[in-house]
Design a protein around this nucleic acid. Sequence first.
DNA 1: TTTTCAGTCTACTGGTTTGGTAGGGTGAAT
DNA 2: ATTCACCCTACCAAACCAGTAGACTGAAAA
Lengths: 135, 135
Amino acid sequence: MLSKRSQYAFKALTYLAEKYNAGPVLISEIAKKKKIPLKFLENILLQLKKEGYLDSKKGKGGGYFLIQNPKKVKIAPIIRIVNGPISMLSCVSLYFYKKCKDCDGQNCGLKEMMTEVRDASLKILEHRTLQDLIV
Amino acid sequence: MLSKRSQYAFKALTYLAEKYNAGPVLISEIAKKKKIPLKFLENILLQLKKEGYLDSKKGKGGGYFLIQNPKKVKIAPIIRIVNGPISMLSCVSLYFYKKCKDCDGQNCGLKEMMTEVRDASLKILEHRTLQDLIV
DNA sequence: TTTTCAGTCTACTGGTTTGGTAGGGTGAAT
DNA sequence: ATTCACCCTACCAAACCAGTAGACTGAAAA
């Protein structure tokens, strides 16, 4: 399941996508409109800035804004950043891979199945963008 | 991600699937062969028994065993029992549905996307069985 | 009928993650 | 110099996770 943090992140990003190229948006505006705790949101946006999705301006007329066109921003990497692995097993994860110790033998039925599930999910999440979140 | 508990559950179930119709299997045997902490495994198997997947016999010659043919036991419901929802959002979950409060409006881009992801995953997990975990 | 075997049950614990809150710091604009 | 608005560090309670301890029950065999 996506954490609350992740859901807030997507709400905020969707809001910023709607306001793309319309200048900086206040954290407080996003917080109010999307009903997200202000300080929590600050923290989330800061992370998204550090990861290269957002930029910000301080002082009067400041705020946050998307760096890239929302049509170009894929969903999957955002999930990885705010929520962690997309796979159901780390031994199957592309970006958070960890060998599962005590996994008897090289072939594991669960692993195969979870690889399929991962690919099915990625097929969707790697192709959809922030633009698709705007309704 | 599947919790350790879930992974242990699948290891144990796979082991029991291999020994289907071969009489009760000791918890201690499963624990040893699959390298699962004994008391933790006890707890997991007990839950699977209560949920109707396993039965057990006490005393000498006792142990756990699958009630149904592993070919008939689907993966998805097991995940729901030991790990929780399969969906990435509760407002999209079939078995753990919860309305997301403050989800502005009835249509939500994230929700649509996560419904697709859920369906893609279920297409796999609702059709595969314990039998498929045996390699 | 006592012992042994093996699953059942309750409770606890230490560590990590989640979902926040508090408050001061920094830097740009007026 | 003040105000505005993001930046940063630290802290906190509750929930969850992984596992442990130990006593109890019920079946089978000696």
